[in-house]
């Protein structure tokens, strides 16, 4: 095969995305062609480039940015109409980096804090700014959970599941991500954690249905037992026929069958 044809396959070869046949074709070509094999060698050598570490100040600046952003949002309504002209949070952050800015901002914060303290001291309904911040916070949490559930490492996904439990009300997207995790995550631990997180939301019909359906799909005895226990805990009588079906399935782990029998007697 000519270099031109190989060059179409080469990028996928480098990322390991070729079929075994194509892979062999490329390997055979590389044995004979110096140019193409050098190209592959350069790609591999790129791993020699060191991973550079950002300076520790980077984290400090990040924290400062975060505080400035949040202070900017939370102080806006409390500061009253005389503070209408406020710089945007980005300029604000630049400004904050100068020593003068830092000092001025600290003083301003103190004044605003005292002012806000007086205003909020009396009985007052939940102000719209706090509601707004809570809403924002919920969406950040959601972002973290969704991103972590997509991670390669099981421990990161596990962490993602545990993040989701910090929220009383599950957002539909997070809920569906958790249900997906319960069904398809390759790690038993992560599936168990997802079940645990979902167990708090038994009022959602979707959750119950998924747990019942998972009974037939899951192969791991650990997960099966956890699912059965969950159904018993919910006193889900509708799950009985599904449990019957499960205990009749062949190749079922004896411990799981025993658990299913116990659950059926409990649900009677």
């Amino acid at each position: 095969m000519k270099c031109e044809q190989i060059s179409e396959l080469l990028p996928d070869y480098l990322q390991g995305g070729l079929s075994p046949d194509q892979h062999h074709t490329v390997e055979a070509h590389l044995q004979q062609c110096v140019d193409c094999s050098e190209e592959v060698a350069v790609w591999r050598k790129l791993s020699l480039l060191p991973v550079e570490q950002p300076s520790p100040m980077s984290r400090v600046r990040f924290e400062a940015m975060l505080q400035a952003y949040q202070a900017g949002r939370s102080n806006e309504p409390a500061s009253g109409p005389s503070w209408k002209k406020r710089p945007s949070s980005w300029n604000f952050f630049h400004w904050l980096r100068s020593p003068f800015g830092a000092a001025a901002w600290s003083a301003a914060l103190l004044v605003i804090g005292v002012f806000a303290g007086f205003r909020m001291a009396g009985p007052k309904p939940l102000s719209p700014d706090i509601a707004e911040i809570q809403k924002e916070l919920a969406s950040t949490k959601q972002l973290v959970v969704l991103s972590m559930l997509q991670q390669q490492s099981a421990s990161a996904r596990l962490e993602g599941v545990s993040w989701s439990t910090r929220e009383q009300q599950l957002n539909p997207q997070v809920l569906s991500a958790l249900l997906h995790t319960l069904r398809y995550d390759p790690s038993v631990d992560v599936r168990l954690a997802a079940l645990d997180a979902l167990s708090r939301h038994s009022t959602q019909p979707q959750v119950r249905n998924s747990v019942v359906n998972a009974l037939q799909e899951q192969q791991s005895p650990l997960v099966q037992v956890a699912l059965i226990d969950q159904l018993v805990e919910w006193h889900d009588r509708e799950a009985k026929p599904h449990l019957e079906k499960l205990r009749q399935s062949q190749d079922l782990n004896p411990a799981v069958r025993q658990r299913a029998d116990w659950a059926i007697s409990k649900l009677n």
């Binding site: 975060l66 950040t140 973290v144």
Partner: peptide, 9 residues
């Protein structure tokens, strides 16, 4: 809370 979460990212 928000700081902690963005901190993870």
């Amino acid at each position: 809370g928000a700081g902690e979460m963005l901190g993870v990212l």
